[in-house]
Amino acid sequence: MTTSKTDGPDFASSSLPRHLGRGVIGFGSLIGSVAFIPLVGPVSLLLLPIGALALRGCPMCWTIGLMQTISRGRLQRSCEAGRCTLSVADRDQARPTESVTL
Rank of each mutant, 00 (worst) to 15 (best):
S33T: 06
R77Y: 09
I25H: 01
A94Q: 13
L20V: 15
F11P: 09
K5P: 06
G65H: 04
G82Q: 09
L48A: 14
M1A: 11
R56S: 15
D10H: 00
I70T: 02
S29N: 05
P49C: 00
V100N: 01
S4P: 01
S29R: 02
Q76Y: 12
R56M: 13
S71Y: 11
C84F: 06
A35W: 13
S99L: 09
S13N: 07
S15P: 07
S87F: 00
L48Q: 03
W62G: 02
R83D: 09
T2K: 15
L20S: 04
T97S: 10
M60R: 12
A81P: 03
G32H: 09
M1L: 03
L102A: 12
S15R: 08
L45D: 08
S99I: 01
G28E: 08
M1V: 11
C58Y: 11
S33K: 05
L75I: 12
L86I: 12
C61W: 06
G21F: 14
A81L: 14
M67T: 10
L16C: 00
T69V: 10
C58F: 09
T101P: 05
S33C: 12
T2D: 14
L53W: 15
P96E: 10
I25N: 02
V24K: 08
I31K: 00
D10K: 08
D10R: 13
M1S: 12
S33P: 04
P38W: 07
R77A: 09
V100R: 03
I25Q: 08
G41D: 03
R95Q: 14
T85N: 04
S44N: 10
L48S: 09
A89F: 01
S44F: 01
E80M: 02
T69G: 10
P49F: 01
S44P: 08
R77F: 13
R74G: 02
L45G: 08
V40F: 04
G51Y: 05
A94G: 04
F27C: 02
L53K: 10
L47V: 08
F36R: 07
P59E: 10
P38F: 00
P96L: 12
G26W: 12
A94I: 00
V40G: 03
P59M: 13
I31M: 12
T6M: 09
R91E: 14
L66P: 05
L39H: 07
I25R: 05
L55Q: 06
A35R: 14
G8S: 11
G41S: 00
R22L: 11
Q68D: 07
A89H: 01
G23M: 02
V100T: 03
S15N: 10
R91Y: 04
R83S: 05
D7A: 15
S15T: 15
S33A: 15
K5M: 01
V43G: 05
V34A: 14
R56Y: 10
A35E: 06
K5A: 13
R18V: 02
T69P: 10
G21Y: 03
F27D: 04
V43D: 07
I70P: 04
G82A: 10
V100M: 09
S14A: 13
R56I: 05
R72G: 00
I64Q: 02
S4F: 14
R91P: 09
C79I: 07
L66F: 15
G26C: 05
G41Y: 06
I37K: 12
G41M: 00
S44C: 04
D10N: 12
T3Y: 14
